[in-house]
């Protein structure tokens, strides 16, 4: 016999229905502020405001997006809005945007002004998915160069356009360690050739042969 004994696929034949994570996920209330004083001005206990800010600040050095140099960072975040990151690469220091605010994940009790919460047992910030949905870790927020009003997470998820309470999907705001690597250094020829091909009204479908 000149043909394969079998030809099976285990990955390509799609599974009937995928249950997507995050689908139907419940939103959580969080609070967003520029700084501790602003937090306190919204009738939150200053000690809590300070404690959450400290958590966010500690996370900042871990999650802020990294750039190979200051210029690339400022292109995204604006002149004077970047600082050196703790890591170095062969050509010098990495840069990262400055922290422009923070998101307090745990419901602050507003000095009991909001009228006591029914449940006293909120999941702690490190534990995910209790009966009330996943927790939102307190984290730093940033503002991009061309959109100074929007608070964004380190992974560029917009969360609010003004201070105060807002709703977020917990899965969309889970902090991740910053990536140091540079991307997009392959594939440029594909783009160039595709453009050339398009001009000749005869597009390239494949980079195989």
């Amino acid at each position: 016999m000149k043909r394969s004994k079998k030809a099976a696929l285990i990955l390509m034949a799609p599974v009937a229905t995928m249950i997507l994570a995050g689908c139907g996920e419940k939103e959580q209330e969080v609070h967003v502020f520029h700084n501790v004083d602003e937090c306190a001005a919204y009738y939150h206990p200053p000690a809590e405001c300070q404690a959450e800010f400290a958590k966010a600040e500690a996370l900042h050095t871990q999650v802020a997006p990294r750039y190979q140099n200051q210029q690339e960072c400022e292109t995204d975040f604006g002149p004077g809005q970047c600082e050196t990151a703790p890591e170095r690469h062969q050509g010098g220091s990495f840069f990262m945007p400055m922290m422009m605010g923070y998101m307090a994940g745990q419901m602050m009790n507003r000095g009991n002004l909001a009228g006591g919460q029914a449940t006293q047992t909120q999941p702690s910030s490190s534990q995910a998915s209790g009966g009330r949905g996943a927790a939102v870790p307190t984290q730093p927020l940033y503002k991009s160069r061309d959109d100074r009003s929007t608070f964004r997470t380190a992974s560029n998820q917009a969360v609010a356009s003004q201070p105060g309470a807002t709703q977020v999907r917990p899965s969309a705001v889970q902090p991740q360690r910053a990536r140091l690597v540079q991307r997009g250094g392959f594939g440029q020829q594909a783009a160039v050739r595709q453009e050339a091909q398009r001009r000749q009204a005869n597009r390239q479908r494949s980079y195989g042969s």
């Binding site: 690469h89 062969q90 990536r179 140091l180 690597v181 540079q182 991307r183 594939g187 594909a190």
Partner: peptide, 17 residues
Amino acid sequence: ALEDIGALDGQFYDTDG
């Protein structure tokens, strides 16, 4: 995806680092 390949100090990395 080819465009997602990352490089740092001469080594390639995937999206998980």
